[in-house]
Design a protein around this nucleic acid. Sequence first.
DNA 1: TTTCAGGTGTGACTAAAGTCACCGTTGAGC
DNA 2: GCTCAACGGTGACTTTAGTCACACCTGAAA
Lengths: 209, 209
Amino acid sequence: MIKEYLKHKFKNFEPALIERIEQNASIKEFEPGEMLMTTGQYFRSTMLVVEGRIKLYREGPEGGEFFMYYLEPGNACALSMICAAKKEASEIMAKAVERTKVISLPIELMDELMRNYKTWYYFVLETYRSRYEELLVVIDHIAFKGMDERLDFYLRNQVIKLQTKVLKITHSEIASDLSSSREVVSRLLKKMEQKGDLVLHRNYIEWLR
Amino acid sequence: MIKEYLKHKFKNFEPALIERIEQNASIKEFEPGEMLMTTGQYFRSTMLVVEGRIKLYREGPEGGEFFMYYLEPGNACALSMICAAKKEASEIMAKAVERTKVISLPIELMDELMRNYKTWYYFVLETYRSRYEELLVVIDHIAFKGMDERLDFYLRNQVIKLQTKVLKITHSEIASDLSSSREVVSRLLKKMEQKGDLVLHRNYIEWLR
DNA sequence: TTTCAGGTGTGACTAAAGTCACCGTTGAGC
DNA sequence: GCTCAACGGTGACTTTAGTCACACCTGAAA
């Protein structure tokens, strides 16, 4: 089971590595809305996503959930690797948005995998690099763009990631993800609708581009 | 020479690792203002900072230099490690702000160091973790705080990092670092002066806290 | 000495974003 | 059917940040 997941979702792993992981890993499941990680929490394991979707976000002072990126099958939680290895606390929140399965690896295994399996070490580096780049994109947007562009980018990103042009999301949720307010989002959406980019409905948005 | 630097600035490196690095590394020097890295550039080496200071920033659409963090002696450029290993382009700018010396390691060495030296592999992980956390702090500030708080944090950070309460910096430079405008910064600084946090002078700011 | 670029101060205005108030709609649960 | 909470629309307003215009000061170079 675990072996099948690894083969299909982590195609670059060498056979011996898959073998080794299988001997020590377990599968964990999370329901939509369930937290995988909260600020200040410590890790005892590294997680490889094999099914579902995890939202990584930063918690705002008034409870906002500032969206940073999704983890999808084939991804790993960069922080769970680092924090696990260093036994340090994380400063980020992770929540399942769909029913999610992850392969959980005890941190004790990290040293050995790192030393003995080149494909593992490449995978870890690539994980960091890509998460770091995602944060850079986030910074670009909040530092240099207005809400209108950010909203547009956000919706486009959702369409691509969720593989659907029908986004089941409310205006307040979007506002929370962008650290803005519901009214502002509503107004900008209305403008986009007038431009013909989308159609607004109750509880969902139809993307037209 | 390289050995001495490694011993003093990278105290966690095991002796054998220092030995190994020394055989393959070279020292590079950069003058203030010199670029170590620009958007879209590829790396052929990993860099360990041993002297001076490097500013990591994101270039804005109108040439702003949005400040993210400094690299100091004992730090390594996380991206140079990743991008070097993966032969990918970076999306970040690095500029020496002081006369800076770095130890330059050919990327070919990375695999071997990673596999054979535990202290190297820990160092790489720790480098990523801390840079990632720095970005999270940046995101927190631009996503949740106003310019006044960001300015305050920026100045405090400069005082700590540069180890001086006399900041040789102009209002326009601060504005660029914060991706704001000179007038806004001038006005906020004036307010802080009235509160007694600092004293404004031509070309420098005296920090009083 | 004169010139001039760069740094700073400030008022007036504009634009963007956030807030407040209020209302209409929808649909789930009773 | 009725109720009510959640969702969404909108006008009016405030706050924050950015822009424009201009003035003054300083110090280095001519």
